[in-house]
Design a protein around this nucleic acid. Structure first.
Lengths: 145, 145
DNA sequence: CGCACCAAGTTGTATTATGCAACCAGAAGA
DNA sequence: TCTTCTGGTTGCATAATACAACTTGGTGCG
């Protein structure tokens, strides 16, 4: 039955989330899971507004504000005033930010890879595809949950 | 290439993690994401030790202990002394716990299901199986990650 | 223009989850 | 018995977060 599968997916995803959070601290002392994710986001599309990030991650703007402050103090991101609208700050990765992000990514990927070492290539690809499909939907959609 | 699939899995899992975290609070006033997940776990296999839960979710035993305390005070779980080993408490859902869990499950499943609505049954099951496999490894294994 | 309202961010405050370390109680083995 | 191990609890500190009040800049309408 679909019910069971859905239930399992929901629970296992949650379990993963827990683990991801737990392991995040060991990746880089300076970089929490959220910070890391924010950096990753900025890497892909520089010049984001804090509000965009908040919306995207369903976080309060105050939370993002503080996270960004931390990242800025660590020298990993830069706030640039938007000349078009002086309320807005466009966030950009610094060189240091880019470097650190690359470092952490490598380490993170290694950790994941270790757990996937005995998977068949075909399964890996299917699993990856499923995850993309799942997340694509939640990312694009109505921004709830 | 394995690299690409691993990279994708890593990224997508992380993406999910942040969202799960973000949406955690809004399901049931009484039930945090973790509590809910713990309940779900107990439903499937009653008589778990707190330590088992801690290991599975990569949580500190103190955290689990407190969560269980909360759940117990809410009347949702029961601690039963293991007659074999008096250090151990076997955790069981109460009737109320079962009821609440069912309620929340419905709501939550609806949310997840909405995202999975156009998936083929076969894909759902495979996805679920992959997640289980992935998590099983990190849970049973070397406890790092 | 000037005033009312909206939007982006910041800061104060409280809550909650969490980990770590110290501790207690029961079990197991020498 | 004494030592060591394991399951669990509690004290303490920290980090992430939400919410609300506030500041500053933009927009629109009279």
């Amino acid at each position: 039955m679909t019910e069971a599968a859905v239930e399992t997916i929901q629970r296992e995803m949650t379990a993963f989330a827990r683990r991801a959070r737990a392991s995040a601290g060991r990746m880089h002392p300076e970089l929490s899971l959220v910070s890391y994710t924010l950096l990753g986001h900025l890497e892909e599309s520089g010049g984001l507004r804090a509000t965009d990030l908040a919306a995207h991650y369903a976080l309060d703007k105050s939370t993002v504000s503080r996270q960004v402050t931390t990242l800025e103090r660590a020298g990993l991101v830069e706030r640039r005033r938007d000349p078009e609208d002086h309320r807005v700050q466009l966030l950009h990765l610094t060189e240091a930010g880019r470097r650190i992000l690359a470092q952490v990514s490598v380490r993170r990927r290694a950790a994941v890879q270790e757990r996937l070492v005995d998977w068949a290539q075909e399964d890996l690809e299917r699993f990856a595809a499923y995850l993309v499909r799942y997340n694509a939907r939640s990312g694009a959609g109505t921004e709830d949950d």
